[in-house]
């Protein structure tokens, strides 16, 4: 199955996962050193979801992300230097340091924002999907969210809304088994999260979220369907959160045996092996890693050297000025 994925796409997804992993490892360390303020939720272990989904999207397709949102922006083409500066709270960041890790957005890349309210993005993405439908283009819109979000009222409203309006909305659940600290068996009774889709007469599939090829292929069929007017779809990606809910979380609630096996599944290592088996040279993959490492080094230097926003910035960007054209 994965062998049918074009090699350039397969390599691109590898690069995306590596860039996310490097970025997240770096920000984790920088957070521990006090360089990054606020709450920091890292995506380590879940890279295959963002990489596999976004490899199917065009620049003009829209996504909306979660509090754990760095990976989605990177997968949609985000620049690591502008992201790093934003996480540092610097004026040169994507959002002038006003959003930070939990609210980072780049509409020019179709990334409508990380979002710190669990479940909220599922509602918002429907509006982007509706706009594509209204304008008659074949754009799609993707909401990422976790297993915990599928218990919110907004999620259920949004699934129903997308189904009734037959919107090109794709709902991607990153099921990492935990809603913060609460294991999934304590917060929902269904076996597979994808069962939720049945209630809205929407196709729902469950895939191995540690297999970027499986994520890519499941998304491909959902995207093709949505682009051709077939309506919304739900994709559950079963994945693993390697680190805590946020960086200060010591994960005492996770059983010891689970902690020992968290890293047994590594989507990047697995994909590397698949690429090697398809004849890609180790040197080529190493070069991808080195490029990412260099990009990251530059990003950190850029963020370190960037100025803090002026305190007066608290009072700008609250409203768009009323246009003269009124």
């Amino acid at each position: 199955m994965n062998n049918e994925i074009p090699i350039d796409v397969a390599l691109s997804m590898y690069g995306t996962m590596v860039r996310i992993r490097r970025f997240e490892q770096a920000v984790s360390e920088l957070y521990a050193r006090g360089k990054i303020p606020g709450f920091l939720h890292t995506y380590i272990g879940e890279e295959a979801v963002a990489a596999g989904v976004c490899a199917n999207l065009r620049l003009e397709d829209k996504i909306i992300s979660t509090h754990r949102g760095h990976g989605h922006l990177i997968a949609k083409g985000g620049r690591l230097d502008l992201m790093m500066a934003e996480l540092f709270g610097k004026a040169t960041g994507y959002n002038k340091g006003k959003g930070g890790s939990m609210h980072i957005a780049e509409p020019d890349l179709g990334m409508l924002g990380a979002n710190a309210i669990v479940g909220a993005g599922a509602a918002i993405i429907n509006g982007a999907a509706f706009t594509a439908q209204y304008l008659g283009n074949d754009g799609v819109a993707v909401a990422f969210f976790g297993d915990g979000a599928t218990n919110t009222g907004t999620f259920h409203e949004a699934m129903n809304f997308a189904a009734v309006w037959n919107l090109p909305s794709i709902f991607v659940c990153e099921n990492n088994g935990y809603a913060e600290s609460t294991p999934r068996r304590q917060h929902q009774k269904i076996q597979a999260v994808a069962q939720r889709a049945v209630a809205y007469d929407m196709p729902g599939v469950t895939v191995d979220g540690n297999n970027v090829g499986a994520v890519y292929l499941a998304t491909r069929s959902a995207v093709q369907r949505a682009r051709s007017g077939g309506g919304p779809a739900f994709i559950e990606c079963q994945t693993t959160r390697w680190r805590g809910h946020h960086e200060a979380d010591q994960q005492h609630y996770r059983p010891k045996e689970e902690m020992l096996t968290i890293e047994d599944r590594d989507a990047i290592r697995d994909w590397r092996n698949e690429l090697l088996a398809r004849g890609v040279s180790a040197a080529q993959l190493d070069e991808i890693e080195q490029t990412a490492a260099q990009e990251l080094e530059n990003a950190v230097a850029f963020a370190e050297a960037s100025p803090l926003p002026d305190p007066a910035q608290a009072y700008t960007d609250i409203f768009t000025p009323v246009s003269e054209a009124l």
């Binding site: 829209k62 509706f130 949004a158 309006w165």
Partner: peptide, 24 residues
Amino acid sequence: RNTPISENTIVGAATGAALVGMRP
């Protein structure tokens, strides 16, 4: 456009549409 009785999602969808150029 008629909507389901889903106030939070009605407003959320309007926000998503407004973000990409509509005026709901």
